[in-house]
Design a protein around this nucleic acid. Sequence first.
DNA 1: CGTCTATTTGAATGTACTCAAAAGCGGTGG
DNA 2: CCACCGCTTTTGAGTACATTCAAATAGACG
Lengths: 193, 193
Amino acid sequence: MYELILKNIAECITLSDEERDYFISLLKPKKLRRRQYIVQAGDPCKYECFINKGCLRQYYVDEVGQEHVIMFAEEGWWISDMFGLVTGNAALTNVEALEDSELLLVDKNAFDKLLIQYPVFERFFRIKLQRAFIAHQKRLIENMSLPADQRYCNFVERYPSFEQRLPLKQIASFLGITPESLSRIRSQRAKSR
Amino acid sequence: MYELILKNIAECITLSDEERDYFISLLKPKKLRRRQYIVQAGDPCKYECFINKGCLRQYYVDEVGQEHVIMFAEEGWWISDMFGLVTGNAALTNVEALEDSELLLVDKNAFDKLLIQYPVFERFFRIKLQRAFIAHQKRLIENMSLPADQRYCNFVERYPSFEQRLPLKQIASFLGITPESLSRIRSQRAKSR
DNA sequence: CGTCTATTTGAATGTACTCAAAAGCGGTGG
DNA sequence: CCACCGCTTTTGAGTACATTCAAATAGACG
């Protein structure tokens, strides 16, 4: 149950037995069926979520009602609505299971206490955030500098597992193009082999 | 000399006298002339930089030699190459003064020690990173969902000071469009008043 | 004053979009 | 197990927005 999340933490910091046990005591297991939400835009965001099994997406709905996938996450990833979690305001985005999934939740309040009691977790989340920030910057640059077909190539290379398990429509939204366009890009790629 | 940076920190955390004095002892003042670099792609990134006066830009040069502005920063902002700073590898981006500027530098090694010695600074940079991450997500969503003219409107509203002090070419690059396009957008806006 | 760069404007081009319709696929209930 | 319904994906045709290329003008700097 906890191997994956402890491995995830061990990649960044080293925990004492006490810290590890306390951290584990905060985790709430949660099963989610396909299409269920763990965060909904407009509601408070109560949890930081670690994925033990399954696959989720975070997406934003704009003024004209269109959905935009911000990120996907699968086994071993964290996902949440950072804005809602940090500010305590209503979440801006939705987080939805794309498959039946098993999560480990960290309650927002417990989380805040954890950081004060064991500052090593400040370090952990700082490191995580740095990495996420860097990845985000790279994506932003790519979105601005590359045409759609190359963005898709990079996506396939970088996240072969997502390419396998996600429907075209969702990937198109992540890439910022229409499903029609991605369909055409795929058939072009298939030809040139 | 240090009012601005202490105010910047006080927005996130409260420092003891000892912490404050130690932190200040790490700061190296540095003047930069217009067009000078504080970080260059390919070189190691040795500093986290706080801007006391002036204006800088961070930009990425892609495979075909085109520049892409990632961010601007003026008085009261931090700027650096996060990737280089965190990993110790060569920086991916350039950070260049757009005006004569005055910086306060925190050396990477001193910075690492600081975080270990006074974990309150872990907290400070975690909070800073969270905010930067949220801002980045919003920008990504905007870039994907809005046409160029509306992205420009938002930019003007959000950063009126940048709009004033930066050349069209740089703003266009930040928005991910050509200077010609931004010129046309501006003349359109001028008409509709 | 002259040079170099930034900005504006015009014309042609192209990439990705919208709209529309057909085909494919999956899940549900009879 | 099959038939049906709804949603996803594919394909086509026309369109729009932003780009490229080119040239003229304006502005900044030495």
